Simulated scan of single mutants.
Amino acid sequence: MTHETFRTEGASLTLHLDGPDWEGARAATLGNIAFRDAEAGARLLAEALTHLRAADRTRVLGPMAGDTWHAYRFVSETDGTPPFLLEPTNRPHEPAIFAAAGFTPVARYFSARMRLADIDPTPPPATDAITIEPWDGANPEALIREVFALSTGAFAANAFYTPITEDDFLAMYRPVMPMMRPDLIFFARRPDGSLAGYLFAIPNYAEGLETKTIILKTYASLIPGAGRHLVHACHSAARALGFQTVIHALIHDANRSAERSRMEGATVFRRYELLGLKLDV
């Protein structure tokens, strides 16, 4: 991936020329935004856009560090509570700088929380199609490789999806592996043992080691209904472990999981936006 870092006193960003597809055109992306000084940030953003026009790019997305596997999205609304573990953050003035340059939202997301005690403990209807099991804690790299194989299929239809190599996927997850708790990681397996879905939850260690909050970070499935079973297993295990609150993290507004979160009564406490600009309009 072709990328270049732009820096000036008080501001920096990284430009990736070869980002995801957006409406049939290859978009560039602007990531690793650090506009400590607003005026310097505005000048640097203008410089990056000039560079993109010279490179004949007609679409640009931001903030996005190359693709949706890495950090992306600005916080657009918040109740002021501290960021949770692995949550994207930004300075309040940074989205406004992008908006002033003509960027508008192209996708919206939210995070919501609720008390585990308020979640209906009734399990979903039984099915013979899958079996839900927790991770046994063995061989984390083999686990990640299996998850990678499923993710490339489960996420391929998502907006702004870009393929990633297995080595890059492993590099993303290695720093997180020491924080993984096997009793908060679940798999949905078919009768033949093949993987049909997975769910990763992690304690919100941003609150400290004794946190009572878990983050439902990522789940994906290839079989309709598997997600409900995975989420139920996670909520049930978290209650039994003494956790009190669950965060449904970084959900796209249009996902089925967004409707499920709303139906369960979770309260939105943060909203996010991915911004885009068409340079040929």
Rank of each mutant, 00 (worst) to 15 (best):
F6M: 02
E9Q: 09
T14L: 06
G19T: 00
P20D: 00
P20S: 00
R26D: 11
R26G: 15
L30Q: 07
N32A: 15
N32G: 14
N32F: 13
A34C: 04
G41T: 02
L45W: 03
L45M: 01
A48C: 06
A48I: 03
A48H: 05
A54W: 01
A55R: 14
T58I: 09
V60Q: 10
L61E: 03
G62P: 07
P63V: 09
A65H: 11
G66T: 00
G66S: 08
A71C: 11
Y72G: 00
R73L: 09
R73K: 15
F74E: 13
S76Y: 12
E77L: 08
T78C: 08
P82M: 09
F84R: 03
L85V: 09
L86D: 10
P88N: 10
R91A: 13
E94V: 05
A96D: 12
I97E: 05
F98I: 06
T104S: 11
F110H: 13
M114S: 01
A117F: 02
T122H: 09
P123F: 08
P124E: 08
A129E: 15
I130G: 07
I130Y: 07
T131P: 01
T131W: 02
P134C: 07
G137I: 03
L143W: 09
I144E: 10
R145K: 12
E146W: 06
E146S: 15
A149F: 07
L150W: 13
S151E: 13
S151M: 09
F155W: 14
T162F: 00
P163K: 02
I164F: 02
T165M: 03
F169W: 15
F169T: 03
L170R: 07
L170I: 12
M172V: 10
Y173M: 07
P175D: 11
M177H: 07
P178Q: 08
P182M: 13
D183P: 06
F186S: 06
A188C: 10
R189M: 04
G193Q: 12
G193A: 09
L195N: 12
A196Q: 14
Y198H: 15
P203T: 14
A206G: 13
G208I: 09
L209V: 11
L209M: 13
T211V: 07
I215C: 05
T218V: 14
L222M: 15
G227W: 14
H229G: 12
L230F: 13
V231K: 08
H232R: 12
H235C: 13
H235N: 13
A237C: 05
A238M: 06
A238E: 08
R239P: 10
R239S: 10
G242H: 09
V246A: 14
V246H: 04
I247V: 15
A249R: 06
L250R: 02
I251T: 09
H252L: 03
D253H: 06
A254Y: 04
R256I: 00
M263G: 00
E264L: 10
G265A: 01
G265I: 01
T267A: 08
R270G: 04
E273V: 14
D280S: 12
V281Q: 10
